[in-house]
Design a protein around this nucleic acid. Structure first.
Lengths: 212, 212
DNA sequence: ACAATTCTAGACGATCAGTCTATAAATAAC
DNA sequence: GTTATTTATAGACTGATCGTCTAGAATTGT
């Protein structure tokens, strides 16, 4: 006898608030991403993360081993999201390669403005706060930067093929330089509460690109 | 009747451990500078700061109104120290202007290595952690960056006079760009635990300088 | 009815910034 | 030399908040 409507339901007590299966976990990750980006990891209490999505405290340790494991999951989650966002620009064949990078920066600036320059980049923030202490975070953050770097390097390689960059350009080096400076600019824009540092870095970066 | 040896002594109980006058306060600032730079403001407890210099808790609130005021004092203290350090290079008339900037960077890299890439820059760290929230900190941090920027700009102006830079160089713009990128590089070096990001930024920055 | 599974409820001890009262140790005034 | 004033120490205490854990409630499967 198969109950069609409930056949996919797992056994066990259902989650509060009508959330299904993995929904609670994802809701926790979402609220955590926002809060950790804005206030930092150590300054954000579990209570606040839980309250925001109306999940009881007892549930937290059902979904995550501890706060550190939760932090890792949040990083993974944000990393995936950010790679998609980055690629949505860098692989956009409607525009030449260099314009794509430009478009990503404009998009990021809008994001900064949208949240009143209070958030910035989770990866950058976590790097500053925990990069030099925690081993697990260090690894995840390094890998995130490595991927971003390679995506931008690919984009610069394409620009070379498109004749927008000099043939002898070291794309890898430039991509590294880009992310070093970009994260610095994000930080400074959080402080000045405007996009001037981001604009300044963007303009200078494009100016230093070796033209063919 | 004037007691020469004690005439400058204030009344009141002397500080513990043979410390004189403002020494205890300064000791608190020093231990705080180290700890706040390494672990961040919110993650550092007063107890730890106090224990390190063997000052009882009761004394803390004699010297500082609260933790926030203490944080401000630490920032002020570090700002002054850093300006001296920066000027010791940028005003060093034994070398041409651009070499002075180079020397500062080398010095900073040695500092990073000395503390196992765990500290970095207090101003940068505080900017990331508190720059977008606390008004008092925001003001102090912005001013610190503004001063640093003007010192580097002056140095670049001098380099122009010395014929090391093109006459139409925008020193202010370049100095801004320098600090944006440099703080980004410090952050990344904390993560990678080596000076590669700092070296990379340094090399690229000098390469992009418009030669005469 | 009973086991297995999933999620919740809230107690728990540790630690946090911050406060308070008491007092010790010095100088200054008389 | 006694007393007043000033400066700094001492550390118990509070209330809030932290991350963690154990017991049990709510569901499905047998």
């Amino acid at each position: 006898m198969t109950n069609i409507s409930a056949s996919k339901r797992k056994p066990g007590r259902p989650a509060k608030g009508g959330l299904e299966f993995g929904d609670t976990r994802e809701a926790l990750l979402r609220s955590g991403t926002e809060l950790l980006t804005e206030k930092g990891f150590n300054s954000t209490g579990l209570d606040e993360i839980l309250k925001r999505v109306n999940v009881p405290k007892g549930s937290f340790y059902h979904y995550f081993k501890n706060k550190e494991a939760y932090g890792c999951a949040v990083i993974d989650n944000y990393s995936q999201y950010f790679i998609k966002k980055l690629n949505s620009h860098l692989l956009n064949e409607e525009h030449p390669a260099l314009d794509r990078l430009q478009a990503f920066m404009q998009d990021a600036m809008q994001g900064m403005e949208k949240y009143d320059y209070k958030r910035g980049c989770l990866i950058g923030n976590m790097t500053q706060e925990l990069g030099s202490t925690n081993a697990c975070y260090r690894d995840k953050l390094s890998k995130a930067f490595a991927i971003w770097q390679s995506l931008v390097a690919d984009c610069l390689e394409l620009a070379k093929q498109q004749g927008a960059l000099a043939k002898d350009t070291d794309s890898t080096l430039l991509a590294d330089f880009f992310w070093i400076g970009w994260e610095g600019a994000v930080m400074r824009s959080k402080l000045s509460r405007d996009n001037k540092p981001l604009e300044l870095f963007s303009a200078q970066f494009f100016q230093l690109l070796p033209k063919p």
